[in-house]
Structures are given as structure tokens and as C-alpha cells.
Design a protein around this nucleic acid. Sequence first.
DNA 1: GACATGCAGTGACATAATCACACTGCGGGC
DNA 2: GCCCGCAGTGTGATTATGTCACTGCATGTC
Lengths: 222, 222
Amino acid sequence: MSDNTSAILEQWFPRDDVVLQQLGKQVQRVILPAGHVVFRRGDACRNYIVVVRGSVRVQTLSAGGREVVLYRVTDGQTCVITTSCLISEESYPAEGVTDVETEALVIPQAVFNEALGYSESFRRFVFANQGQRLGDLIQRVEDVAFGRVDARLARHLVDRCGSRPGTVSATHQQLASELGTAREVVSRQLKVFEKDGLIAVRRGLVEILDPDALARVAGEDR
Amino acid sequence: MSDNTSAILEQWFPRDDVVLQQLGKQVQRVILPAGHVVFRRGDACRNYIVVVRGSVRVQTLSAGGREVVLYRVTDGQTCVITTSCLISEESYPAEGVTDVETEALVIPQAVFNEALGYSESFRRFVFANQGQRLGDLIQRVEDVAFGRVDARLARHLVDRCGSRPGTVSATHQQLASELGTAREVVSRQLKVFEKDGLIAVRRGLVEILDPDALARVAGEDR
DNA sequence: GACATGCAGTGACATAATCACACTGCGGGC
DNA sequence: GCCCGCAGTGTGATTATGTCACTGCATGTC
């Protein structure tokens, strides 16, 4: 069990509170492999899920068969959709898939409800997470509605490799889903970046040669 | 005071519960004129707001100065952003403006927090609302990313006038904000609809002549 | 009437999405 | 090894949208 797990459990279900201690015992820990489908569109939601370590991307399949990534849930975070579905007892409107091996806490609905009523700090955690994911979603609407593809692509690559040169492992199709655009557009844009010496592309792989220049492209607000 | 207000107050703060009764006394009712700015980007959030009657649109101003409408809050609903900002004590990431004269309940932060811990039914209401607005947002991401402007515009007009012929009062700029596109695009598309005899346009007004045909345009999934 | 202002129309151009199809690297089966 | 299949990629043609620059038009104010 990772240190994170213990810390989170201790924080929410401290030893000195008998009620929370009891609730804490019903929390399970799971480790999911990369690519595991955590929930599908239409599934009923039965558990509150907290990602302790790893990354889950939440995406939706449009009528035309295209995918957009809505947001990611990473270390110490939870998913807005899960939370609201859990309480309103609606089914999932999107799907969640692990990007990498992911460690998560699974809190049954009943336990979640009790903890929510009992502990203000738990409530605060839950809602703060809601706010953050919500902000991600709003940002996404703005990006897709107004953002230029070159800037968005550059930003995404920089985000994934940091400020040091390195490689990002993704197909053009995956990148397109991240950005809410089409594969061809990504292919062409990558070509442009490559011609400018910012990156090198190989099958399923993008090598970042000049993160600073890339960051500059990302930052140029039109 | 409208019937709705009494009903909502009675539902959340019933007479037979002394604690909730006390909390209920601190809830205020306000009537806001059309076009009133309920909250601005960057404002701190101090109250939980429930729209009893009317409509508030929540929108965001992008870096380029363009506006998108994220969703609307109407009769009996609340705003996701308000809720999560209130609990996580962050500032508003968007702004809210009344479309029409709007009657609302204003619940101070402290009262909201207490009620949330005390009443499961109140909690359920709060989160169910979160889920609905969230669904709106997801839909918006899909629309903006994949939707065709003609279909979205047609759908929007139909939504606003119903299945009977009638008039929608909005400038092209307003329509563009609703759809997350540019004014010129709306102007051109309206011209096309007009040429096809679906609508007639006048300054600040769109007259719906053939709602059925318009609905057909809206429904044609690509 | 002169002017300011907000709204709408339009052409030219840039960017992005879509469609159609060719090409390529790689792994599995033989 | 060789062939094949397939996911991944490249590219041109076409259409849809977004952007820019500017004009015209209605309305209100002085």
C-alpha cells in the first residue's frame, strides 16, 4: 500500500473518531492496470472512487463516433461525474479509462453518504474536487470553441513532457482526442513542428527537441 | 411571493424540524431585473443561490474577448459553479447574468453548510443539480467540438420558440455566444435559412416560419 | 440634420474539418 | 524468411468555419 493511501485514509477516517473509523473499514483499495475501463456510459454508479496514484481519463463518444477527453483524474483527485452520479443516482454520461496502472480507493455509496453527512472536512474535499474538475471542463469549452489547434497541441505536448526534452508516447489519433480535433489535423501540425525543428515524430511517439520554443507557440495568445 | 418559493422553503425547511426551521429563517428572497449581473469572474462566493422563477445564463469571456454561454439555470435549479465555489471557497471562474426578471433564494454560506450536514434530502438536491448542469457542460463540449453550426443554430431556434411558429428576440451576436461561434457565421447561416423560407430576419429578431423544417435541419446527424 | 452607436451584410482570406485514398512499419502465421 | 493484415500515418481536394476589414443601415441624441 502506498504512503498516499495511508495518508488519505488517516485523514478522512482518523483513529480518534469511532464513527469514521468504522466507515473507513469498508473502504477498499484496488490496483487497476493501464487501459482498464473504470466505467462506461450508461453504467450505474455505486462507488465513490478516489485516485491515489495514476491517472484516469474521462472521455465521451460523440454521435459521429469521435472521442473527446473531458478531463483527467490524477493523484489525490476524484471525478466530478462519479460524484454527482453517485448522489443523484443517475447513470454515467461518459466513460473512464486508466492511462497507466492506477491505485484507487473504492468507497461504497452507503459509506460515502454517511461520511458526507458526518464530516465537514470530507464534504469540503468532495466539493473542492468538484470545483477543480469543473474548471477543467470550462477551460475545455473555451479551448475547443476559440483555441487554435497549433497552440493547443504545443501546450499539450509541453504539459506531457515538462520543460526538459523527452518523448511523448501517443498516436496522432490519441492526440486528436485529447484536443477535440481530427487526426489529419494533428498529423499535419506535427509535420509543421517537425519542419521547424521543434520535435521529431516516429510511429506512436513524439520526441520533444525544443520544449521552450514549443512553449512559446503554446503561449502566443492570438 | 410565488407559490414555488413557499413550496421550496417548506420542502427544505419543514415546520416539524426545529433546526431546519431556524435555518430557513435566514434564507432571503430576491427579485432581480433582466440583465442583472449575479456574479462576475473573480468574485468570491458567499451565498447559495436557487433560481425559483426566471433564468440565469452562465457564461465565460475567453482570452480573445469572445463569450460562450456555458449553461442556463432556470426554475428550481441551481448553478454548479456557485455550489463548488461556495464549498471550496474559490472565486467564480465565470459570470452569471439574468436573462429575464428572476426570483431567487439566497442562502448564506453558513446556513448552507449547516443544512448540508444536517439534511440528506438537501444534500441530494444540491448534488442532483450538480449532475444536471454537468451534463449540460459535457453536451456543450461535444457540440462545440463536433457539431455543425447550421444544426446547432436550428436547434437553438427551435428550442426557444417551441414547435409553433413565433419570434425569437436576439441579436446575431447573442446567438453566436449561445453557440460558441462568431457573429458573421450566424449572420450567414440565418441568411441561408431565410432563403430557404424557414425563417425571416429582422433587426434583433428572428421570425420562425417553419419550425418543423428547422427541427429537421437540427436533427440531421451528420 | 449631424452625429454617435449598435447591429447587420459581405468579400477576401486563413484555418480547420472532412473525405478519399495511398503508403508504411510491424507483428503474426505460414 | 516471406506474405499478409492492420493500425498508424501522409496528402490532396473540397467544404465548413473563423477572422479581418470594411460598408451600410437603423435608431437615438443633441
